[in-house]
Design a binder for these strands. Structure first.
Lengths: 239, 239
DNA sequence: CAGTGGTCTAGACCACGCC
DNA sequence: GCGTGGTCTAGACCACTGA
């Protein structure tokens, strides 16, 4: 263990080592990490330094800690964090849980801009998945999801796709989404999308263009969602 | 200094004391706080405990620290944080700086729901301010702002309102906005608003209903903004 | 140079979960 | 009781700032 080569603070070097272990799958979601003292001994630093690195990772929601039990790798499949990235609410802020049905999937080549987004080569194959999300049995969100086939082999042959794709990414492909970037705008619906949302063509809808980022910083999914603005809002708190 | 009465961790008690001093205006924006050792001595705790409380406040952006210089109360008037709550961008993410002109101001009684929002009594007087924000000389955002007159006496008589109302709240009224809650939806513009935004009536626009929260947790402003969706998006990152 | 915050260590004690 | 993480302390040294 050579921790002394960089000019980074020790705790940052420890942090980098630990994050790399998560990225490499050395520790998997829900797994228990060694105790602070065990890590400190292994890495040749003091327990307080390990603690500082661990706490930073907790702040970034990569880990969870429970007093008396231990330190765990976050599963983004838990109720508490499963809907962390799902920002649609009833006006006033009431949480809402969506159901999902897949309308279609197909494979296609990535366009130039898409290649740039995913930062991959020109042979990039994508899966394009179209989904309809319903809330309280009302059609609410029409969603076009793009995934690089290289990251998610045969994802289009998956039957029983879960309600949350992020769960699938993590459990089946070992890819954890830790950040999303949304761009919201308003559009007039085309007839096709309006039909799916049981709205009139010409209605206004929220359009959300989302890039999902994994633990190693890569964009691993891009989606465009059209949300019926009659009954739902996109709700976000900025601190 | 009695810090031992609660069953809170020491650093949390220190945190509460320090936050209270900010709320009460004992320390004002841009002011330098005493050093860690000075605070530790005054409060009868160790320097490490003070540091933990200070660092939490830095994480919440209430304070800023500079090695070798000291600890400062955040001014939300700085370039870096001034536009922290301004989320409109060009598609693709390029930052954008708005200009603002006030269209009208008037005083009126609060409605029942508004009284609830501001958590004040029934005699609550509001100032209703209508503003147009332009970006690169193009009308972009039409905004209706509601402020309790009790919090901001004679704010409607202010001339030369600044581009950022938050700056005014802080500098003139000692009220710091530390959090905003946005609810986004899509609407079809009425003729009146469309005219102001130089759009056709019937165009789609982003509607943003925002509550602004001050350091003591109260809602101190409510606004409704209509943003031309042709050239701008609302951009947000969730981690 | 003195004073500030930033890092790192070592050790004590507490609170919690589990056997 | 034992092992875990959580808090608190005390002290050392470093890095940056400004007189």
């Amino acid at each position: 263990m050579t921790l002394t080569t960089n000019f980074q603070p020790l705790y940052k070097q420890v942090y980098d080592v630990l994050v790399k272990r998560l990225v490499d799958g050395y520790w998997k979601p829900a797994e228990t990490l060694p105790s602070e003292f065990a890590l400190a001994k292994e890495l040749g630093v003091s327990q307080g330094t390990v603690r500082k690195a661990l706490n930073q990772m907790v702040a970034e929601k990569l880990l969870r800690r429970r007093q008396g039990k231990g330190t765990y790798v976050s599963e983004h499949t838990q109720e508490s964090s499963l809907y962390r990235f799902f920002r649609y609410r009833e006006p006033g802020g009431e949480k809402v849980i969506p159901e999902t049905t897949v309308i279609s999937t197909r494979r296609r080549k990535a366009t130039k801009p898409e290649q740039l987004t995913f930062n991959l080569d020109s042979k990039l194959q994508l899966v394009e998945m179209i989904r309809l999300r319903t809330i309280n049995d009302l059609p609410a969100i029409y969603e076009i999801v793009l995934q690089p086939l290289a990251l998610f082999p045969d994802i289009d042959k998956e039957r029983d796709l879960p309600n949350s794709l992020y769960t699938l990414y993590q459990e089946k492909y070992g890819v954890s989404v830790v950040e999303v970037r949304d761009e919201l705008s308003a559009v007039i619906l085309t007839e096709e999308v309006a039909d799916q949302l049981a709205l009139k063509a010409g209605s206004a809808a929220l359009k959300n263009t989302r890039a999902s980022i994994s633990i190693d910083g890569r964009v691993i999914e891009v989606s465009t969602a059209y949300c019926s603005s009659d009954n739902f809002v996109y709700s976000v708190t900025i601190k």
